[in-house]
Design a protein around this nucleic acid. Sequence first.
DNA 1: CTGAAAGCGCTTACAG
DNA 2: CTGAAAGCGCTTACAG
Lengths: 330, 330
Amino acid sequence: VDVAAAAGVSRTQASDALNGRGRVDAGTRERVVAAAAELGYRANLSARNLRSGKTGVLAMLLPAMGGTAGENEAWGLETYIRTTIAAASAAFAHGYALMFVPPEAAPSWLAQVPYDGVIVSDPDSDDQRLGQLEQLNVPFVTLERDIARERKLYVGSDTDRNTRMLLDHLAAAGAERIALLRPEGQWSWTVETTVAFENWSAERGRRPTVVPVSLHHLEGSAYETCLELFSSSERPDAVLGLAERFALGALRAAKELGLAVPDQLMIGSGIDTSTNAAVQPSITALEINPERSARAAVEMLVAHLAGEDPPAPLIVAGDLVVRESTSRAA
Amino acid sequence: VDVAAAAGVSRTQASDALNGRGRVDAGTRERVVAAAAELGYRANLSARNLRSGKTGVLAMLLPAMGGTAGENEAWGLETYIRTTIAAASAAFAHGYALMFVPPEAAPSWLAQVPYDGVIVSDPDSDDQRLGQLEQLNVPFVTLERDIARERKLYVGSDTDRNTRMLLDHLAAAGAERIALLRPEGQWSWTVETTVAFENWSAERGRRPTVVPVSLHHLEGSAYETCLELFSSSERPDAVLGLAERFALGALRAAKELGLAVPDQLMIGSGIDTSTNAAVQPSITALEINPERSARAAVEMLVAHLAGEDPPAPLIVAGDLVVRESTSRAA
DNA sequence: CTGAAAGCGCTTACAG
DNA sequence: CTGAAAGCGCTTACAG
């Protein structure tokens, strides 16, 4: 009422102008928006949700992570924190609250609690949760592509390009035998990176070395795997650690074996963390920009809930952060 | 209406019975509750919030954490994840959504976004955020005690008891010279643990060794600090790493120097993570039960918002998880 | 484009 | 304890 009066229009016009509905003259819309800003008007979410029959809640299904000591670690703890905080902010900016649902709670939660839509973080290739969501006929967006289904509602990393960017960098710096430390599990991101690595290698007539590493203790598993790998007859001259902390384990193994980094061995990480920048030598890594992906996923879901046309999948580009571990003296 | 009809009472009675208001006969209340359960009735939160003038939103202010590569790490990343997920669930169970607010966003967020109350995670001794909350006259609960203010609205760990439990265990296993690896910063938890350690030492006529460790790279900083500490003339026979991963750094330093764990050096951690259980030797740690604290903090805030009498501070007990790093052969 | 009306689901004040 | 009424802030359908 106040905004409408300040703009000199009716309530209906004010509401339509602010919400982008109906036919409203451009000048009128501007006046209404200006009046709303002037008055500091912000729609009451409870009222809006009550009227529109929405719950105002989005759920975010998290992948397994080290909830209690002894369980498996997530492949990217720091990345998850960045993702969840960015997603919560984005949801709130669009008038939604974001609930985080750990995997154990998902089956019963999804069936009992009211919500408008769901974001599924890192589906794996046989993801139970997606089946349940489809059965319940719930709108959802995945963060990273769902390999098993042909859905367009996802935001993914540009994994093929990212992987090639890192591999090209290693090759340009002189790497001839690159080994990929691949976390166990069938997450899209893991699968896609492995495929990209194999393709890149094939295109250059190289034999790809893919070494599976347990997720049970990220740094320690990578360390032990690398001790063996670096002692073998065909020692790689570069390793690419895919999960968080794999590169750190590789670095420790190299130090223990007296291998000079980067001169005898280059190390790269498929995911960046604050630790990569802090260790010596610092570790070259892909910054996959999880905040951007999280925000995009929320916006895609919100647009979908608003009934907008299904958008194309959104691909978020990564950035290569070159550090000491791959910077050989000229 | 439906519940009231099913229970054979009026709407008013049904509402009062379900919400614990007014004078309702115990038998009537039971019938109403049973009818609600039978019908699967759940109050519409938007309507309830609209009617009661609430926003239905609680905010949780997070301490600084490694948002982007290069920043400081939080002292307990895995612990934070457990805390945030448990808090979100608890809030939802009480009809609230929980928003996570990173420290950079807090000042403007608190002033602009509507919310009913705030949980402040890990205040430090000169916490700007608490000053702002008091100025805005916003109800808030801190997770861990706010040392600077005399507030009763907090949920804390039983830090004195926890610390003594761990120290007693080390002493019983034969430790005579215990060193505390203390993270930089003035978080309540850090300060209180240090005080407990000093008191415990004084009571036994021991000289407490407190070694400050940078938070910039948790494991690496502890490793480097310990290399030096373990090579000094008065080498400790036990170390207690306070922040997440400090104990791991200590373990690596011990291995590098050829110190047998636990026979020559015992290692304990003030905070438990999945990694402590996974490394060899596994590391004895305090399980501070962050889920329980988070839940309690939410419940305290909700009770406060409901106008209930200010409760006493709530103290959550920790558990000692004894592992190989302190289990000497008989 | 106006303006009055209706209703989302809930809680509460009130006369009986 | 009943039962009808009022109103939280919003959106939308509708006659003009």
